[in-house]
């Protein structure tokens, strides 16, 4: 915890970013984040955590602080139109978290790209993928 705080503090105070000192921050969609950058740097995990419980237990589906919404803007395709995966250094979350040395396990379960990226695998091709794996017929 202490370590985490100090890292957060380090990033926050040095304002580390493009100068080469900090992590490489991939370009996001849009002009402005849902909160001021500094606030996000220090407290994004609180927001996501809070939103997580609200959504899971109460069905509150506001997007402002949702993980999905983070991905919508911050995970963008490269020139070839390919979205980075959470296992790659070009992924927004992964990059900074590797830099900060804090392991996150969000993407063991959660999709690591925006909805749009899954559109590429069309509903139809997902269907045929599933046909390949079709459950054994009922006995």
């Amino acid at each position: 915890m202490l370590f985490m705080l100090s890292v957060v503090a380090l990033i926050a105070f040095t304002g580390a970013s493009a100068e080469g000192l900090g992590p490489f921050i991939p370009k996001a969609k849009g002009e402005q984040c849902v909160e001021p950058t500094q606030v996000m740097r220090e407290r994004h995990w609180e927001f996501i955590l809070h939103q997580r419980d609200e959504t899971v237990h109460k069905g509150i589906r506001t997007t402002r602080h949702s993980l999905k919404n983070c991905l919508e803007c911050h995970v963008q395709p490269d020139e070839e139109g390919r979205f980075p995966r959470s296992s790659e250094p070009t992924h927004f979350c992964t990059n900074c978290h590797v830099f900060a040395g804090i392991r996150i396990d969000c993407f063991e379960c959660h999709a690591d790209r925006p909805h749009e990226a899954y559109g590429a695998i069309s509903r139809h091709s997902r269907l045929s993928l599933n046909d390949m794996f079709r459950k054994r017929p009922v006995r």
Binding site: G59, R61, K68, L71, E108, C109, H110, A111, H115, Y118
Partner: peptide, 28 residues
């Protein structure tokens, strides 16, 4: 370990799951 989970259906190793009554559809 699972991979390729969909945005509306987060799932992963070591947890129990069951029918969600398509809660993502219901909420939408």
């Amino acid at each position: 370990n699972l991979t390729e989970q969909l945005p509306d259906a987060p799932r992963g190793k070591g947890c129990v799951e069951s029918c969600t009554l398509c809660v993502h559809k219901v909420d939408a």
